[in-house]
Design a protein around this nucleic acid. Sequence first.
DNA 1: GCAAAAGTGTTTGAGGTACACCCATGC
DNA 2: GCATGGGTGTACCTCAAACACTTTTGC
Lengths: 212, 212
Amino acid sequence: MYSYQYPHPAVTTDVVVFTIRDGELAVLLIERGCEPECGRWAIPGGFIEIDEDLETAARRELREETSVEAGELEQLYAFGRPDRDPRERVITVAYVTILRAGQTSIRAASDAADAAWFPMRKLPQLAFDHRKILAMAQDHLHARLDDCTTAIRFLPDEFTLSELKAAHEAILGAPVDKRNFRKRMLARDLIEATGTIRRGGAHRPARLYRAK
Amino acid sequence: MYSYQYPHPAVTTDVVVFTIRDGELAVLLIERGCEPECGRWAIPGGFIEIDEDLETAARRELREETSVEAGELEQLYAFGRPDRDPRERVITVAYVTILRAGQTSIRAASDAADAAWFPMRKLPQLAFDHRKILAMAQDHLHARLDDCTTAIRFLPDEFTLSELKAAHEAILGAPVDKRNFRKRMLARDLIEATGTIRRGGAHRPARLYRAK
DNA sequence: GCAAAAGTGTTTGAGGTACACCCATGC
DNA sequence: GCATGGGTGTACCTCAAACACTTTTGC
């Protein structure tokens, strides 16, 4: 038992993991294996350890529950409404990260009964205030999109411009003009041609690019 | 005494209050009246109550320590390095707010030995990681500046375009082109002339504007 | 009349948007 | 030769930046 002179809240970290699957923006959720909200889908996360940095805790909880190793985490927001968890006062610091397509194999563990990818357009009922967290995470992602580097994080090291354009379209949920897109990406000088090409079907092969 | 099965961190909220004084961006600080870091200047804030929303706590602590009633608060970031407070693990959720010039009277109370405005260019030594919090708050403020509405929050209900321009210059710490500034502000259609003018010295009177 | 701040337009360059056709390949 | 996705250029518009003089007032 740990005792304090004043009541202390619990603090958790949650990680919203985005990827692109089947041409759609998708998010990693776990099925809760214990009360409260047992059986509901939720954003992976959990209680921080007392000597652990917030970001480290976020990374650890994600690994434990889903076996996913996160890359760069960005802090999204601290959610702290007093009634957001029925057990006790729980403040959660939410993070956002991006997983490359193709590295999306997951394995539920810890107190997660299951783990799965859901397209953002077809979310299940979510535990706690996690619907609101996802909405804010998606807004954050959209806002970051004109960095150009953000969409690249969804793709493997080498990619074609068509794939990058498809990533933008998946994230925005809206079509993008091909020529303007290519012009803008090449003008930013953040990607470079590898010099190799990829042949993949009955059509002209595509140049491959990598991040600079 | 309050006991928990697992150790819990303490959670505080801090509020970075910006205003403009003497034509310079200034921030409200308190002199700590108790250990640790007694005598050091710090961002006003303190421990949340267990049933209190984060934003409510931020507003309350600011009021208790400085007698300032905050308007709109924006969440900045959650700072949670395990070693940031020597007493115990303390996670702080930092907020930013803006106080109108002219409403900047303050009165130190609670565990603040003193409260005072400091120009951002001449900060004292600060307690904990508060220097870093201020740096991030200033970045945040700069990023918000092209909303046009942000600079208005530093001014009284009615203001002249020259005053608004001076506010931008104070926040940015750099001069702004008068004609381009006026054009941009009027084009955004976020302010309107009150129809009145202010005479104030041996020169042409200025039109007054208000936020729409 | 003079000091002091308010007010006013035009030119230029950069970047975003809209838009249609040819190219290289596999079958 | 045809289907499929890869690759390309131009005209227009909007917006930001640079830049100097006239107007209105108090004294």
